[in-house]
Design a protein around this nucleic acid. Structure first.
Lengths: 157, 157
DNA sequence: AAATTATGTCAATATGGCTGACATAATTTA
DNA sequence: TAAATTATGTCAGCCATATTGACATAATTT
């Protein structure tokens, strides 16, 4: 019994349009911070690290690796640059001294704010001009992600 | 006079959630086709080329470069692999013989269909479980993209 | 005391971008 | 017609970000 939500009820050409818009939207979405980053000699990888360290201050290297889905060798260079640049601080784990807890410095907090600003603006504009609310976007995007990522996000809270 | 659409009326933590969800959603969104592609020795770059050649059969190399926003040197390798593999066909421009019009072969059409299937499924699921329609997503995403990309999309039609 | 764990590091490799320089053929312009 | 421009292709080298595999160190657990 087909409903309005039935997969077959969808217009394939509109779905294809959405696929294409996702490409352009995501590209433009990361282009803004990219400019700020490249002026500092950083890239997207640095942005993602700053985001997650801000999202959960004091997270460990292992947690960060899990969130990013990359290897420790890939993270190493990026993290070192952020630490050397004074954007991130590493502290010994309080209960397990092998762990390195990651914290944003004041400079790091300012930087992630700068990076977030154009992205927030873009999202707010899109919500306004499409007439949707924050929760609409959150509901849609939450359903786009797989169970794996869902679990990762839960561990952030 | 602030309205319900006023930027300052937005909840910054929800906007930050949307930023984060976009990261996870896009990552998962391209992970599905990535598996199919890597089995063929291809990558995301090949996917994008196939998408746009399908979107506008007979587009020229210059048009494709403009859409992708990369240099011809970057495109060269990817395009060559797709042509050599029998997924894309190049034909002399009918009015300007310097141009190379790009067309999908039957094999190329099958491949882009395969790549599109998991992405369509994911979008349909997200629309269904969030209670939105195709047009909601199209309106939101269209507002996310800049005027530059907007113009590019228009030239596709 | 031995095994495991968290982190870091070295080396080699792949992908997908980039710039600069140059080549060829076709078209347009003076 | 000759010269300039354009569309495309190609060579060479560089960069950022990822990978795998191997190994080192210190701390914790068994």
């Amino acid at each position: 019994m087909p409903t309005i939500f039935d997969k077959d009820a969808r217009d394939p050409s509109k779905i294809n349009t959405i696929i294409e818009l996702l490409f352009f939207a995501y590209r433009d979405f990361i282009a803004d911070p990219d400019e700020i980053l490249s002026a500092l000699g950083f890239g997207r990888a640095h942005h993602r690290v700053l985001h997650f360290v801000d999202r959960k201050q004091g997270l460990t290297v292992a947690e960060l690796l899990d969130l990013l889905g990359i290897t420790k060798q890939s993270l190493a260079r990026v993290l070192k640059q952020l630490v050397d640049g004074g954007y991130i601080e590493q502290r010994e784990g309080p209960s397990d001294r092998r762990q390195r807890e990651l914290y944003l410095t004041d400079m790091g907090a300012l930087l992630i704010e700068d990076l977030r600003r154009p992205q927030s603006r873009r999202i707010c504009e899109a919500l306004a001009s499409s007439g949707h609310g924050e929760d609409d976007a959150i509901r849609f995007l939450s359903s786009m992600i797989g169970p794996n990522a869902k679990h990762q996000i839960e561990t952030l809270e």
